[in-house]
């Protein structure tokens, strides 16, 4: 890649977060380190997977409000994880996490377990316990 071809698409994700370093060839054919503020391609694929997580989270929210699932399912997608990743990050078995998605089981969980979930999701314990229509998370926390 020539230095002139290094993409400078000013992608949204990096706005305010600086640049990335890349290696490219200068006019004399020598490799140099240079900076880029992003390539649209990476933005497109990132936004696509984020949109997919948003859809999953919205569907989960409906299920939670209908009493078909527990709030854990909503937060897991909000935090860009899936159930196997959540089980690994919690350090407990997958079947236990799946069981905790059952609202009946979820209601009986003790505060210590709930606090572990809340810590992982970086939310208050109350937000996990009292799930409401307008529940959301602070992306910067």
């Amino acid at each position: 890649m020539k230095i002139d071809d290094v993409p400078q698409d000013q992608i949204r994700t990096f706005k305010g977060y600086g640049t990335k370093a890349v290696y490219a060839v200068d006019a004399k054919g020598r490799y140099t380190k240079t900076a880029t503020n992003g390539w649209e391609v990476e933005e497109v694929v990132l936004r696509d997977v984020l949109a997919d997580f948003e859809v999953l989270a919205a569907q989960a929210k409906q299920r939670v409000l209908q009493g078909k699932s527990s709030p854990i399912e909503f937060f897991v997608y909000k935090r860009l994880m899936d159930i196997p990743a959540l089980a690994q990050a919690m350090g407990i078995a997958r079947w236990r996490v799946r069981r905790h998605l059952n609202p009946k089981v979820f209601r009986k969980l003790n505060d210590r377990m709930l606090q572990r979930y809340a810590d992982l999701f970086r939310i208050q314990l109350a937000a996990l316990k009292n799930f409401k229509e307008n529940t959301t998370i602070d992306p910067d926390s």
Partner: peptide, 11 residues
């Protein structure tokens, strides 16, 4: 998602 994943790992 499959193609997106390959590219995300790449870029």
């Amino acid at each position: 998602l499959f193609l997106g994943n390959v590219v995300r790992m790449q870029e």
